[in-house]
Design a protein around this nucleic acid. Structure first.
Lengths: 226, 226
DNA sequence: GCCGAAATTATGCAACTGTATAAATACGGC
DNA sequence: GCCGTATTTATACAGTTGCATAATTTCGGC
């Protein structure tokens, strides 16, 4: 809890509590993300982050060799969260492949993935990729990991439809689907008022259906013969 | 040692030339964009920008009320350039609608639009949208302007194919196509080594064809059965 | 040629930045 | 209960930041 340090005399030291290493690191990462998302990367200063985490600024250097490393860790956490959310939507082994892909698309185009806060974080990190090789490595890893969520999903759908999958098609199809989702996610998060409720998800599913060349059904529909 | 003029004695004043207002403003904007693209937004300081523009830092305040306004102007210039490049590719009134859309897609997925420098600029600005209302307004305007390039193109293609266009379909189709292009542009600019030469453009055209439900042809093709 | 206005430089400043250091505190193990 | 140590605070520091100001220089119009 943020203790009232406004003691008029100013002679008493701030009281504090010892936290476990993991807990404190998590608090600091969370505070970093809050700063960046709400006030931008330029406002994510050591002091502001420490304030939000309820500690004094010196503590940051006790947990991270440099502020830079903390930001990198925050990037990893962000992308991990986004991948995890996408995973639980599509990979939960509930439903047939088409239904899972459907849910995957819908999840990526709805809150909490579709969120201006999250987009601000994402863009702030993307902007650093060309400048900081460490950020580039994190991006590469996260991007491939995300695509590795899409690809088996696509592969399963293609297999279910009896399409031969030489591995090349599912890769390219996954890339296209990934791109369509990313693009709609961007537009939707940046200007939600331009789209009516459910419209973004509907467009996402339509686009994926078109790219696949297969209908995804709307719950429990029978697949049409082709 | 803050003086970069190199003259150890420091007795002689720096010689300079008077430039027209437009010319100097353009130089400053260009220097700002170079800074951001190559070293990130955090490195785009008044002093670094002035150095690259070949002037002293005080001059910036003579042309812009605040550095903030200069960055906003730089954003406008960037988006204007990207829209202009896309426009000349698709709107040149050369070729039939399908061919123009084809060229539009290809142009957006090839250099100089497909460029990590340009992507870094774009992401740096996008990251500010949620923080700075002025940047949000600039984004809104640029986004709609870009979509207004895609929509007539789509509308023409649909009309050529004899599809009824009630205005709703072309809007939604344009949004989907826009999203697919944006997503592929992102992936391609961020990790060009993951795609073979021409692959990105090929995937872009395939995706657009799928979303449209129409072939774009590779010169002069006749439409397939529907 | 030269004069005045506009452009440009030079310099300074207060606030802020990341980081280093030493002192103070909390808390598990005895 | 107390003690040692890792955690946390407090403070300082050198460098950087955007911005303000005054002194200079250029150059078009006379």
């Amino acid at each position: 809890m943020p203790d009232e340090t406004g003691s008029p005399a100013g002679l008493s030291r701030r009281t504090f509590r010892r936290a476990s290493s993991d807990e404190r690191r998590q608090d600091l990462i969370r505070a970093t993300l809050d700063c960046i998302a709400e006030r931008g990367m330029h406002a994510a200063t050591v002091r502001e982050i420490a304030l939000r985490a309820g500690v004094t600024n010196g503590l940051i250097r006790h947990y991270f060799d440099a502020k830079e490393h903390m930001v990198q860790e925050a990037y990893r956490v962000t992308m991990g969260e986004m991948t995890a959310m996408a995973r639980t939507a599509g990979d939960s082994a509930l439903g047939r492949p088409r239904e899972r892909l459907r849910r995957f698309v819908a999840a990526n185009l709805s809150p909490p993935v579709l969120d201006i806060r999250r987009l601000t974080l994402w863009a702030s990190f993307i902007a650093m990729i060309h400048v900081d090789p460490a950020m580039a490595a994190i991006h590469r890893e996260a991007y491939l990991e995300f695509r590795n969520e899409v690809e088996p999903l696509v592969s399963d759908v293609l297999a279910e439809a009896g399409r031969k999958d030489d591995g090349t098609e599912s890769r390219r199809t996954a890339i296209k689907i990934n791109a369509a989702i990313d693009g709609l996610w961007l537009e939707g998060a940046l200007a939600p008022e331009l789209f009516s409720k459910g419209e973004l998800v509907a467009m996402g599913i339509e686009a994926v259906e078109a790219i696949l060349g297969l209908p995804l059904g709307s719950g429990e529909e029978e697949p049409k013969e082709n």
